[in-house]
């Protein structure tokens, strides 16, 4: 499957979405990311039992924090899919890229 997805999506691999901390995502925004999304395993299929469920709750909390500080909660998202869903992965990458492009750049981005 040689599927293409937008090149502006930078993938950071973690052992489990449960490893992703709120501070990691905030740092990404501080460093200029326009959007961040987590891709975890399907709910109920977590190798570490509930890592993806925890990630989902953190994303909800992050939305609240990003709304508070004016960056905008809609710039974070959580998706669940299995490792066999390459198509879906590419589709989500396009969907998220489109959504962020509509929102425009991260308003807290530092001048380069």
């Amino acid at each position: 499957m040689r599927l293409s997805y937008p090149t502006n999506v930078k993938i950071i691999k973690v052992p489990c979405t449960g490893r992703v901390d709120i501070t990691h995502v905030l740092k990404a925004f501080e460093d200029g990311a326009d959007g961040v999304y987590l891709v975890g395993c399907l709910e109920g299929d977590c190798h570490y039992l509930v890592g993806n469920i925890r990630a989902k709750k953190r994303v909800e909390y992050l939305k609240h924090i990003l709304d508070e500080c004016g960056v905008g909660g809609e710039r974070v998202a959580m998706y669940n899919m299995s490792s066999a869903e390459g198509q879906r992965f590419a589709e989500v990458a396009r969907e998220m890229t489109e959504k962020i492009r509509t929102l425009g750049p991260n308003p807290a981005k530092k001048e380069k």
């Binding site: 709120i22 501070t23 905030l26 740092k27 925004f29 501080e30 924090i65 990003l66 508070e68 500080c69 004016g70 960056v71 308003p107 807290a108 981005k109 530092k110």
Partner: peptide
Amino acid sequence: SKEVAVLASEIRLYRQKE
């Protein structure tokens, strides 16, 4: 320390935006 990091980040983002 965790909540300090989150609040610091939140304040920086807000003030950067402003």
